[in-house]
């Protein structure tokens, strides 16, 4: 009888453990594939910069030297080990954006990405962005700023900003992350630049990055820009299609990588079409879950040990 109580107790602990309204840090699934949050056409350019890897500094500070006339700006703070009691507070030039807890995108074991629209918060010239946070065993991987700016002296630039947090992992057999930059490229496009951000890449574990099926690089996620952090810029002019361009992140040998950002900017001959900015609604991060393997192992173990107890009798 005592043994039955013992098994019931263990089962109850497990049920309690899996049903607590707790901490995310738990398995958060495959994250959010990258999608277009904003696109447009502007006489001006696109600014993409950021740094500087996982250092556990608190506050974590990064500077951005911005041009004038920012039409749209989006700030990203990728973060390791998000749990529900955690919070972070972003300040731009000492103006707080307020404390936030819930990240915009979270996947795997709490690899999170916080996104902020900061068009009205940034200024021309040097901007100091500071992230103060509470996260017992985690910290930011980087601070990255993407901005589309107007400059009538410059030719027209067509751009797509895609964001998310796609968990490409061996454990889930998710190997490919594909991003579509839908829309026609105006004739006379002469300069195309792609920026990509990958979190948690490891040097020597060969991933691949393709643009319209052309290989841009291998081992792109190799922590070049800082610990666990890669922000790369690619000249993709020669591979540009006239419409619907595509970027593919291939996990390859990496145990896991998290593509979080891809921005495409194409310079066109001047004055072809009207400038515009289209901001899409933000995708909702998928919910957390207990991995099937955890449930399966627990259930099989309980059945086996019950069998052994019953078998003895």
């Amino acid at each position: 009888m005592k043994n039955i109580y013992f098994i019931i107790t263990i089962t109850a602990i497990f049920i309690l453990m899996t049903s607590l309204p707790v901490s995310a840090g738990e398995w958060r699934g495959e994250g959010t594939p990258l999608y277009t949050i904003a696109q447009g056409r502007i006489h001006g350019g696109v600014f993409v910069e950021g740094g500087h890897g996982y250092t556990m500094e608190n506050p974590y500070v990064e500077y951005f030297d911005l041009p004038k006339d920012i039409e749209y700006a989006r700030l990203y703070v990728p973060m390791w080990n998000y749990n529900e009691d955690d919070w972070l507070e972003v300040s731009i030039n000492d103006e707080s954006l307020g404390k936030r807890s819930e990240p915009d995108y979270v996947g795997a074991w709490g690899v999170a990405n916080y996104a902020f629209t900061v068009t009205d918060k940034v200024s021309p010239g040097m901007n100091r962005v500071s992230v103060t946070y509470h996260n017992t065993n985690g910290a930011p991987y980087s601070i990255v700023l993407v901005a589309a700016y107007e400059d009538q002296a410059l030719p027209q630039t067509q751009f797509w900003i895609t964001e998310g947090n796609h968990v490409l992992a061996d454990s889930t057999k998710t190997d490919i992350g594909e991003i579509d930059f839908n829309g026609d490229i105006p004739t006379g496009a002469y300069d195309a630049t792609l920026w990509t951000m990958i979190i948690a890449g490891t040097k020597g574990e060969n991933d691949k990055l393709y643009f319209n099926s052309h290989l841009l690089g291998t081992d792109v996620g190799s922590a070049k820009s800082g610990a666990y952090y890669d922000l790369d810029m690619w000249d993709v002019t020669e591979f540009l299609n006239t419409a619907n361009n595509t970027v593919v992140f291939e996990r390859g040998d990496e145990a896991y990588i998290h593509p979080m950002l891809a921005v495409l900017a194409v310079c066109c001959e001047d004055g072809q079409k009207e400038d515009y900015l289209k901001i899409n609604s933000q995708a909702q991060s998928t919910g957390r879950s207990v991995p099937i393997a955890v449930i399966a192992v627990f259930v099989v173990s309980v059945i086996f040990f019950v069998y052994r107890v019953v078998g003895k009798r």
């Binding site: 840090g25 398995w27 749990n83 955690d86 207990v290 991995p291 099989v300 173990s301």
Partner: peptide, 17 residues
């Protein structure tokens, strides 16, 4: 399997507490 799967998940999930 309990160590490598269940309790590793348990630790990853609740270690902040």
């Amino acid at each position: 399997a309990l160590i490598g799967v269940v309790f590793r998940w348990f630790w990853q999930t609740f270690n902040d507490i």
